[in-house]
Lab assay of single mutants.
Amino acid sequence: KELVLALYDYQEKSPREVTMKKGDILTLLNSTNKDWWKVEVNGRQGFVPAAYVKKL
């Protein structure tokens, strides 16, 4: 599985998104969309802005 690092805090704005804190390590589930990547964090799956994370 591929991991990404949260570069910034992000507060979810819809049920399809997830909240993350700067420094969190997230599991990358899908990065086919250039703007929104699907990740898993704390057992929850959802989208975060691709610009807010970096592949490890």
Rank of each mutant, 00 (worst) to 15 (best):
K13N: 10
F47L: 09
W37M: 04
V39P: 00
Y52N: 05
L56F: 11
N30V: 09
Q45R: 12
L29R: 04
R44W: 04
K22H: 06
Q45P: 07
G43N: 09
L29A: 03
R16I: 13
K38E: 15
T27C: 09
K22C: 07
A51K: 13
S31T: 11
L3A: 07
G43E: 08
L28P: 01
S31L: 05
R44C: 06
V39A: 02
V18Q: 03
K54Y: 12
P15Q: 10
A6N: 01
W36V: 03
E17K: 05
Q45F: 09
E40K: 06
L5P: 01
K54V: 15
K1N: 11
Y52K: 07
N33I: 06
V4Y: 12
G43L: 06
D24C: 06
V53D: 00
G46V: 04
G46N: 01
E2P: 12
A6Y: 01
L7G: 02
R16W: 15
V4S: 03
E40V: 08
P49E: 01
Y8Q: 12
V53R: 00
L56E: 04
F47E: 04
P15C: 08
L56A: 05
K1I: 14
M20K: 00
A50Q: 06
G43D: 08
Y10K: 01
L28W: 02
L26R: 01
S31H: 11
T27V: 14
T27E: 14
K13F: 06
D24R: 03
R44V: 09
T19H: 05
K13H: 10
A50M: 05
R44E: 06
K21D: 04
E17M: 06
G46Q: 02
K54T: 13
V4C: 11
W36G: 01
V39F: 01
K13A: 12
N33T: 07
W37P: 01
Y8N: 09
L26Q: 01
E17S: 07
R16F: 15
K38M: 15
E2F: 14
K38G: 06
V48R: 00
K34A: 14
E2G: 12
R44Q: 08
M20V: 11
L28V: 06
D35A: 14
E40Q: 09
P15A: 13
L56G: 04
N33L: 10
D24L: 06
R16C: 13
V39L: 04
P49W: 03
V4K: 01
Y10W: 11
L28N: 01
N42V: 07
D24T: 08
M20L: 10
A50N: 03
W36A: 02
S31Q: 10
V53F: 05
Q45T: 14
G46M: 05
L5Q: 12
G46R: 02
L7T: 05
A6H: 01
N30M: 10
W36Q: 03
L29Y: 05
K1M: 13
S14G: 13
K21H: 11
K54E: 12
K34C: 11
Y10G: 00
P15V: 09
S31W: 10
L56C: 10
G23C: 08
T19F: 05
N30A: 11
T32E: 14
I25S: 03
V18E: 01
D24H: 05
R44P: 01
N30R: 07
D9K: 03
N30Y: 08
D24P: 00
V53M: 06
G43Q: 06
N42Y: 13
W37F: 08
L26A: 09
Y10I: 01
V48Q: 00
R44T: 08
G46W: 03
M20P: 00
Q11Y: 15
P49C: 03
G23L: 03
K1Q: 12
K1T: 12
K34Y: 09
N42D: 13
Y10Q: 01
Q45Y: 11
T19N: 07
Q45S: 12
L56H: 06
K38R: 12
T19G: 09
V41D: 07
D9S: 10
S31F: 08
N30H: 08
E2C: 13
L26C: 11
T32H: 13
P15R: 08
K21E: 06
L56V: 13
T19S: 15
N33F: 09
L5V: 15
D9L: 02
K38D: 04
K55G: 06
K34M: 12
E12K: 14
D24I: 05
K54G: 09
M20W: 02
A50S: 14
N30L: 10
V4T: 03
L28D: 00
D24V: 05
V53T: 05
K55I: 14
A50W: 02
K34S: 13
Y8S: 09
L3Q: 11
N33Q: 10
D35Y: 15
P15N: 12
N42L: 11
K34T: 12
L5R: 09
E40Y: 08
L56Q: 06
K55F: 10
T27Q: 12
Y52I: 07
G46D: 01
L5W: 08
T19V: 03
L3R: 11
K22S: 08
I25P: 02
K1D: 09
K1L: 15
R16A: 13
G23N: 07
N33W: 08
L7I: 10
K21V: 09
A50H: 03
Y10R: 03
G43M: 06
E17N: 06
S14Q: 08
K34I: 10
S14T: 12
Y10A: 01
T27R: 14
V4H: 03
L5D: 01
V48N: 00
L5E: 13
Y10V: 01
A50K: 06
L7P: 00
V18C: 09
A50V: 06
P49R: 04
A6D: 00
N30C: 11
Y52W: 07
L7D: 02
K13W: 05
D9C: 05
G23W: 06
L5A: 06
E17H: 07
G43S: 07
E12H: 10
R16Y: 15
V41M: 13
G46L: 05
V53N: 00
L5T: 08
E17W: 04
L28R: 01
L5H: 05
A50C: 07
L26N: 01
L26W: 03
Q45L: 08
Y52G: 06
N42I: 06
A50F: 02
S14A: 09
W36Y: 08
K54Q: 14
K1V: 14
K55M: 15
L26F: 07
K21N: 09
G23D: 06
V4N: 01
K22V: 08
V18M: 11
A50L: 02
T32W: 10
K38I: 15
K54L: 14
G43C: 08
V39R: 00
S14F: 07
K34D: 12
Q45I: 15
A50D: 01
L5G: 03
K21A: 09
K55N: 08
G43P: 04
P49L: 04
L29T: 05
Y10D: 00
V39Y: 00
L28A: 02
D35R: 14
V41I: 15
Q11S: 12
V18F: 13
N33R: 10
V53K: 00
V39C: 05
L3D: 04
V41W: 09
K1S: 11
L5K: 08
N30K: 07
I25M: 07
G23T: 02
S31G: 12
Y8V: 11
K38F: 15
E17D: 06
N42P: 10
N33A: 09
G43H: 07
L56P: 03
L56M: 11
K22F: 05
E2S: 11
W37Y: 08
V4M: 05
L28F: 03
L29N: 03
A6F: 01
L3N: 06
R44H: 08
E12M: 13
Y52S: 10
Y10M: 01
F47D: 04
A50I: 03
K1H: 14
K22Y: 05
E2R: 12
G43R: 05
K13I: 08
Y8T: 09
N33H: 12
K38N: 07
E40C: 11
P15I: 11
K34V: 11
Q45A: 12
R16M: 14
Q11E: 14
L29S: 03
